[in-house]
Structures are given as structure tokens and as C-alpha cells.
Amino acid sequence: MSKTNTLLIRTPEGVVFSQLLAGPVTRFLAWVLDFFCVLVVLMVVNIILSFAMVISMDMGVALLTLAFFVISIGYGIALEWWWRGQTLGKRVLRLRVVDAGGLRLHFHQIVLRNLLRFVDSLPFFYLVGGIACLVSRRAQRLGDLAANTVVIRIPRLVEPDLEQILAGKFNSLRAHPHLEARLRQRVSPAEAAAALQAITRRDEFEPVARLKLFSELSGHFRAKVEFPAEAVEGIADEQHVRNVVDVSYRPRAADKK
């Protein structure tokens, strides 16, 4: 089976949804953050228990030994249980542990994946876990394989701002309803999506690349349906693509009925 960066789940309703898997580097960074968190907690506990050592050295050392053990093992278990698959490091890097089958994460899965860190962390710096993560199909370390979990990236969920994306203003293509309808018929969903993506991400491109991209896209759409010269001449390629996206995704009011 080939390696994938996406967890695909097909529901009994026939719908497929995907979740982006986290890679070993991001996970390692999250672990480093968690490591420092544990370190800080241990330092605080150490300071608190040093007062107990004044009363009884034996009791203080015993409490310290137990606290170190419980915190270093329990940190991941407790936080992943309370924050539904997230530790502080995972939260910062927008990662989450989920069941590999898309089902609810159970406590015993969290316990198992955290206890198996004992093997994943061998011989040093999670070498075994890192290698397992690199070679496993779904970027799972041994603990994840045993507990049947994966670590996914949580996307930033924002609704698309249609007013910002689509033309919103005068659209010269709308002056020719029959050609507009033909364009909508000939443009495939994939082509429309590519144009929409180009508009959405226009500010991320270098100026030259931006001009070239919109020139190519505009040329492509101009060849699909030939509009009268007054409708397409005198407008920039980017505006033309914006008009095409507007026509594709926002049919005129009469069509909606």
C-alpha cells in the first residue's frame, strides 16, 4: 500500500470525507513543545515539594519521585482525554489525535498510544516512532498502530467570502445572456474551481506569475465561448476570469427560480 497524507473515510451513506494527516516533523515539533511544558510543570512541582522536604526529607523525595513519574506519563493521557485528542503542543500546531476509522476516540486508545511511547522513544529522540511514522502508510508511530489512532491536522474553518471572491459589481458578460448560459454549460466544475482558486489566492502570487496565470486562464475561457468584442476587450485578464467565476458560481436571479 502506498503512503498517503490523507485519511479517507467512506461512510455507509456513500459520502467520502478526508482529513489531512500530520507528518513526522510537525508531530515532533508538537512533542518538543509538550516536553517543555512537562519540564515547566516538573520545575514548579519541584519547588513546591522542596518545602515538603523541610518537614520530612524522606516523604519529600518520595512525593517528588511519584510526581515526576505521574506527570511525565499522565500529561499526554490527561490532556488528550480532556481536550479530545489534543495536548498543549498539538493545540498550538493545530493537530489532533483521532480514531483511524473516524469513530469516537476512547480512553483506552489514549492510554495505549501514550504508554507505547516507551518503545517509540527508543533508543533516543523518538527514533523508532519517527521511522515507523515515515514508513507507515498513515504516518502512524507504533503507539498509534496499536491504539488504531492517527494524528490529523485541523484546518482553519472559514466560510468563503463570496462578496470578496465574486465580481459583485458590473459584469460585462452578463449583457449577453445566451452566451453567458453557453459559458456556464461549457465550463466544467474543475475549470471553475481552478479559476475560483486563482481569484481566492491572487494576492499570494508573485506579480509576474500572477499576470501569466490570469493571462492563461483568460485565454482558456475566451476560447470556450466567443463573446462580442465590447464585452471582453478593455478589461484586464484578471477581471475577465473574475467575471467567468461570477457567471459560473452565481447564476442570474431568473435562473435561480
Partner: peptide, 25 residues
């Protein structure tokens, strides 16, 4: 339509609901 933001939003929603509805344990 392949509007990625909306697709991601709905995928996340369906994934969460799927986990709650199909869990038998």
C-alpha cells in the same frame, strides 16, 4: 463544485457527526 474552504468545513462537520453516530462502543 470544488470550493475548498466550504468542502473542508463540511468534511470536518461530517467527520465529527460520523464519529458520534456510527460509534457502537
Amino acid at each position: 463544485s470544488a470550493e475548498p474552504e466550504l468542502q473542508r468545513y463540511l468534511e470536518n462537520l461530517v467527520a465529527r457527526a460520523y464519529g458520534e453516530i456510527h460509534e457502537t462502543r
